[in-house]
């Protein structure tokens, strides 16, 4: 969670609100913040840390592990209409790469701003060319985009 907090100002600049969620109580969230996370992140965790002790939210999002009674590393990008645009679920031992979440948000924001007229090719980074799907692009992607550039 400290890794997410580290990118928080970048996410805020993009207009993104962050929520973390686990089966711990909000009291334990406070203890974790006060005793550990605040030592890794200046000022402590800046976003809401949600408590889902019964796993209800985790079940609704398909990330609650009934056998272990924990929530898997699920990450969801939800757009301003409340629609899930992206999801990624990892088993516990491997952490996320938050920079990739930031990149995906930027890509979805670009597509939304273009009202669906633009799309981002594989590996797209902000500032790089986008694709404009239409009759002229069919069979011609090779002219405007190469996988190794």
């Amino acid at each position: 969670m400290s890794a997410v907090a580290d990118k928080y100002s970048e996410l805020q600049a993009l207009g993104v609100e962050v929520f973390s969620c686990s089966v711990d109580s909000h009291f334990v969230h406070k203890m974790w913040n006060d005793h550990e996370l605040s030592k890794m992140v200046e000022g402590g965790i800046p976003f809401h840390m949600l408590s889902d002790q019964a796993g209800n939210i985790g079940r609704a999002y398909g990330v609650y592990d009934e056998a272990q009674g924990i929530e898997l590393r699920g990450r969801f990008i939800i757009d301003p209409d409340g629609v899930i645009q992206a999801m990624e679920v990892l088993t516990p031992p491997v952490g996320r790469r938050i920079a990739e979440s930031v990149r995906q948000v930027q890509a979805f924001q670009l597509v939304r701003a273009s009202k669906g007229t633009e799309a981002t090719p594989a590996g797209w980074m902000p500032g790089q060319p986008v694709l404009r799907p239409g009759p002229d692009l069919v069979g011609n992607v090779w002219k405007v985009w190469k996988p190794n550039e």
Partner: peptide, 28 residues
């Protein structure tokens, strides 16, 4: 939720109009 020193209640639908990054994790 715990939020910057206090306890709050969060309802997702209160945040319609904003982009949300929702991150689940195994435990504190």
């Amino acid at each position: 939720a715990y939020y910057r020193g206090s306890f709050k209640n969060v309802q997702l639908s209160d945040y319609l109009g904003k982009w949300i990054l929702l991150c689940f994790y195994p435990g504190d």
